[in-house]
Design a protein around this nucleic acid. Structure first.
Lengths: 196, 196
DNA sequence: GCGATTAACGACCGATCGTTCTATTTTCTG
DNA sequence: CAGAAAATAGAACGATCGGTCGTTAATCGC
């Protein structure tokens, strides 16, 4: 890896944690530069604009998400094992960054701010929900879930559990947040196992 | 009402919509002043700091929330009627501000930013969830829901539905978001009606 | 209606933002 | 190793931020 690509990676790496704490908009070039240990202009030269940096951060987060959550789930056989792994890895994912999940927070931060960052968020979040629906579909295909349910409905509610977990853990500092989330998820599974 | 209080109200009114679009942090005194039609310093004189303004906005939002969501629900008899009214009014609430629910977005924006704004958000959100739990409890007391369930669990999942609805409507622009939310909510009710 | 109080203004402060420019150092390549 | 190319630094830009100041204009109580 060339020196440039090496620095680029280091920058995005730090930016990931920093923007998870301060939000994608709260992330500033200056503070990021001092944290990486280089000058503001030197860092900036790696990106065409701040928006490009933000999109790079989102891209890096998506890659990490695939490695940490999606791939472990897909390594399991389709059905309940895959669904449970998905959920447990997803709960772990929320703790991997000091400021929590970038997509959860970014989705709320940018829902009214048009531009490439919102477009990227919309795309990534859409992909994540589509992945959940696909995994639910694969569970239906092997009769682990009832095929009479709608996988989009499953993904909708699944994402709700993740979001409320995030807020209960971080803002509300609820000790039993994970337990509440597990109960919610297993109830969701149970409902989708039964024929409606 | 004195002139000062009148202006104060007008400021907070405009600030409510503006901060629902740009976030509580994205709200700037200058843009708010020009929107209200007064000078920056003239507006600022009504508040001790920007944080005080943000807290005033949150306070105003909480008051409006009580009027628009909580009171209509409490006007219904305890049980399913009250729960359904709560949910329908809550869905309406999400559309009352141009930028969506301030508490949903603010909860994610400030979960890592210590200070009086986060404290206020934590308190308001805690109160809202407590209200949901209390309404669930009142439904259990009149056997509309099974008393063997935990009302905190109910509020946890309820808030998840609201949050995922918010994102599906705003960021993802999903046309069927409300339908998905209604299905999720009625499934939640059904589960809490049955004995576990 | 007059005097005291309050509300509002305009100019300005220091800090910081994203961004641009040029110059210098470092890395890569032939 | 030399020369081209890439990476970084430093200073500076215009804009905007929250916040302060003294002053003027409007409001209010008597």
């Amino acid at each position: 890896m060339s020196k440039g690509a090496e620095t680029y990676t280091a920058i995005v790496e730090h930016a990931l944690n920093l923007s998870s704490e301060l939000g994608l908009e709260g992330l500033t070039i200056g503070s990021l530069a001092s944290q990486v240990g280089m000058s503001k202009s030197g860092l900036y030269a790696h990106f065409a604009s701040k928006e490009a940096l933000q999109c790079a951060v989102l891209q890096a987060a998506a890659t990490r998400f695939s490695e940490q959550v999606l791939l472990p789930a897909l390594a399991q056989p389709a059905g309940l094992a895959r669904l449970n792994t998905l959920f447990e890895q997803w709960m772990r994912w929320g703790g991997l960054f000091s400021g929590g999940c970038l997509f959860a927070a970014g989705g709320f931060e940018y829902d009214d701010r048009p531009g490439p960052v919102r477009d990227a968020l919309r795309e990534q979040l859409g992909k994540m929900l589509a992945s959940v629906a696909r995994i639910a579909d694969s569970a239906m295909a092997c009769n682990a879930l009832s095929a009479e349910h709608c996988s989009k409905q499953f993904a909708f509610e699944y994402w709700g559990i993740i979001l409320t977990l995030h807020q209960h853990q971080r803002l509300l500092a609820a000790e039993d947040a994970q337990a509440l989330a597990r109960t919610a998820f297993s109830a969701l599974l149970k409902r989708f196992q039964a024929t409606p």
